[in-house]
Write a protein that binds this DNA or RNA. Structure first.
Lengths: 218, 218
DNA sequence: CTAAAAAGTTAGAATAGTCTAACAAAATTT
DNA sequence: AAATTTTGTTAGACTATTCTAACTTTTTAG
């Protein structure tokens, strides 16, 4: 499989996770590649049995397409984890580099990284790392935005990997695993006042709270 | 610069080190790419000021071509070192993977690896790692083949990175840094009997001795 | 020093991945 | 349900890298 094909599969995988149906236009926008190009590549991947395609119908990955995409995402996330844990990169810096290294042709290379990291289950953003079959665990975290006052939760994952969001979370000194207690929610704009790790109070906009994924503590 | 262009520069650099003059045919053979293709790529790189090219004349890297090639080789060798020291690969396994990773676009990635390795001066095969300007140190080691009986030398580098040669050196349990004392040279076939680290005797064919690069001990 | 061989070059075609322009189908609006 | 907008498709062109075939220049051998 070429680098280009891998990128199409990966994008389709991500879009399929986020939306019920994925159109050629969606894929086109996500890859910033014009629709006719996407159209012909989709046909090509359909010919390889990786995408099931019918004219004017939504796009879907086949079983083997999903597996292939899962394996690429596995490589991507393993590499991100490695870049953070062993090369000292920030979680806002790793995406671009992982985007390149994920295409390296060497099973053993990624196996060794997996081993070096002691077989991590999530990447630096809290996203699950698919297993060696490309199967990815479903995470059903809540958005902090959806929690109520008084609730106590643990920061498990981020809803966006946008650079500016990650940098903001860093600046707020929030980290995955932090305990977050909701002290107050402003009725007017849904701004939240929270207590982090029983120690420091922070104010979070609704937009920020919407991208903080948490697990409720009992 | 594209991956392809980088590969042409690197190949020309290596050929220039080994030979006085480098022809289009040499480059063609080294890349296993047909001559007309090489011809047109050489023109293209000449247009970019990386190769100085005149019809029917030997090929030469320009100043900036040599620098660019040096920087790619730097990345390659840093990665090889990393693969051996941190991911546990054998020195016979790293070339292919480094060949891919050397093209990653991220200065910081390689800087971090350099730092993690504590700024190594040589790669796992004893070849010098070019500095951040792409400048490469000249090594003037002798071939063990050229040494005389009774001489004592240190194994510094290999003259070939062929898989079968490296595996043989492994099997002989020889390592860079080993002390090698020449006990006897067979007149008939130049086979050498040597003492390694004052401990074990080995017999080396002339062909093997020709690819073992050493520094004489005083 | 000429003929043959080797090396180098030019011209033209192929493939992968991209694009724009034009047309067609589906979805949405009125 | 017709008109309009949005989405999807087809056709044809462009770039990068590769190839083969044909031709030219240089080198080598007699």
């Amino acid at each position: 499989m070429t680098l280009t094909e891998e990128n199409y599969l990966k994008a389709l995988f991500h879009l399929s996770t986020e939306n019920e149906e994925v159109s050629v236009l969606d894929l086109s926008k996500s890859l910033t590649i014009k629709m006719p190009t996407v159209n012909s590549m989709v046909k090509k991947l359909s010919g390889k049995g990786l995408i099931s395609y019918e004219k004017y119908k939504p796009l879907m990955l086949t079983q083997s397409g999903r597996r292939a995409a899962g394996l690429i995402i596995r490589k991507h996330r393993l590499v991100e984890m490695f870049l953070v844990q062993h090369l000292g990169f920030g979680w806002d810096e790793v995406h671009e580099i992982a985007e390149q290294i994920e295409h390296i042709k060497s099973q053993r290379f990624f196996d060794r990284i997996d081993q070096l990291l002691d077989f991590p289950k999530v990447d630096p953003h809290g996203s699950p790392i698919p297993d060696i079959n490309g199967d990815i665990a479903v995470q059903n975290y809540m958005k902090l935005e959806e929690c109520a006052e008084k609730q106590i939760a643990m920061f498990m994952s981020v809803g966006s990997s946008q650079d500016s969001f990650l940098k903001l979370i860093d600046k707020l000194n929030l980290k995955l695993g932090d305990k977050v207690e909701i002290l107050e929610i402003q009725d007017f704009d849904k701004t939240m006042r929270v207590l982090v790790n029983d120690a420091s109070e922070k104010t979070l906009s609704q937009m920020v709270a919407a991208n903080i994924l948490v697990q409720l503590t009992v």
